[in-house]
Computed example of a mutant assay.
Amino acid sequence: MPDLEIDRVSKRYGDVVALDSVSFTVRSGELFGFVGSNGAGKTTAMRIALGVLAADSGQVRFGGEPVTHETRTRFGYMPEERGLYPKMKVLPQLVYLAELHGLSTNEAHRSAENWIARLGLAERRLDEVQKLSLGNQQRVQLAAALVHDPSVLVLDEPFSGLDPIAVDVMSDVLREKAARGVPVVFSSHQLDLVERLCDRIGIIRSGRLVACGSVAELTGGAGTQLVVHAPAASPGWAKRIPGVRVVSEEPGGTVLDLEPEVDDQTVLAAALATGPVREFGRRRPTLAELFRHVVTGGER
């Protein structure tokens, strides 16, 4: 499958800059996580990729060519808000949507039944969408994005409202699609899930892409952190050490950022002064910690 390219895309709403020259590529067979705070520009970028919105400048390309209406019929899109007909039954609705993308009636039925079974909706196949639980509506929404066997998947908060079993099912589906060469991009606030699933991640803040790369690249660039578990230490014990910033402080351990000139043995000595030390070691920051740091511009 070809790559999906977002090239210097900008969008304004009056005085509000929704996107400011955003560029990233979702490669063939790649799971790309698109993360940012509410209002950062994720949904706007996805809608522009799908042609739901027009960009003020920049271009969306698929396989090196500008995306056209015909190209977009090969895209699978899952909006954050429900995009289904609430009074229409599940099976007829999926068949209808597949036919809109060019499948014959027989092909549409086969594909709809396949995804209904795969996503655990067999007992709800003839229910009206509005009578389903929110989690099952989300499953139908995913089926609607997949039913025409798309060449690209663009999913806005696909894991929202799903129970852990449904999250596993959807994760497997996305991995399967990527394994078949489909570029998959999705947004999510569940950063642990993004960290586990994605090959690369883009972080957007106030309409600008401020970080992009694999988890290892992003967290590696942030440097390592020190984890210290000193059960007898009083809260704030590490704040008195020059050049040390407390990232988090919990009963299971304190996570610290050290300036380059700080000797970690100084920290160990301070911890031992409070009593026994059960854990002392380096680790890379998690994606959630990196995200908090990036979206606040380095300020806590």
Rank of each mutant, 00 (worst) to 15 (best):
E113I: 09
W115D: 09
I116D: 07
L119Y: 05
L121K: 08
A122K: 14
R125L: 11
D127F: 13
Q130S: 15
Q130M: 14
S133P: 04
L134I: 12
L134W: 12
L134D: 13
Q137M: 02
Q137T: 02
R139S: 04
R139K: 14
V140T: 05
A145I: 08
L153C: 05
D156G: 08
P158T: 10
P158N: 04
F159I: 10
P164F: 12
I165T: 15
V169T: 13
V173S: 04
V173M: 03
R175G: 08
E176Q: 14
K177I: 09
A178K: 07
V185R: 01
V185G: 03
F186N: 02
S187M: 05
S187R: 03
H189I: 05
L191T: 09
D192A: 15
E195Y: 13
E195K: 14
L197W: 11
C198Q: 08
D199C: 12
S206C: 05
R208P: 01
L209A: 03
A211P: 00
A211H: 01
G213P: 01
S214Y: 07
A216N: 10
L218F: 07
V228N: 06
A232P: 10
A233R: 04
S234Q: 15
G236Q: 10
I241E: 02
P242T: 06
G243K: 02
V244K: 02
V244W: 00
R245S: 14
V247N: 00
S248Y: 08
P251T: 05
L256A: 01
